[in-house]
């Protein structure tokens, strides 16, 4: 079971979280024209990286915050975690 460091609560077991997928996906702005391609990329198309993957998790059985987790999809190793509004360098 993964062990995830919630930036608000500390180390917590995976069962307290729910997964939210690729964090690099950005929702197009409201009220702006969006091309079909951009919209499909947002809704459906995923890079599905092997290796370091920045992804979203929500600490649902804890602080209910959405967080960003940098995890290696080939080993499950977690290198860093971030708050929702933290910039990831």
């Amino acid at each position: 079971m993964l062990y995830i460091k919630c930036p608000h609560c500390g180390m917590r077991p995976q069962i307290e979280f729910s997964y939210g997928g690729d964090a690099s996906v950005k929702r197009p702005e409201l009220n702006k024209d969006v091309s079909d391609q951009d919209w499909d990329d947002f809704v459906y198309n995923r890079k599905s990286l092997r290796g370091k993957h920045l992804e979203l998790w929500q600490h649902i059985s804890g602080c209910r915050q959405w967080i960003k987790v940098e995890r290696d999809t080939s080993t499950h190793e977690i290198s860093r975690t971030f708050k929702a509004d933290e910039e990831v360098a």
Partner: peptide, 17 residues
């Protein structure tokens, strides 16, 4: 109920903070 709450939190925290 649970999904809608997470959905709202998602947009409030990540998309439209």
């Amino acid at each position: 109920a649970a999904n809608v709450l997470s959905h709202l939190e998602y947009y409030l925290q990540l998309v439209w903070p």
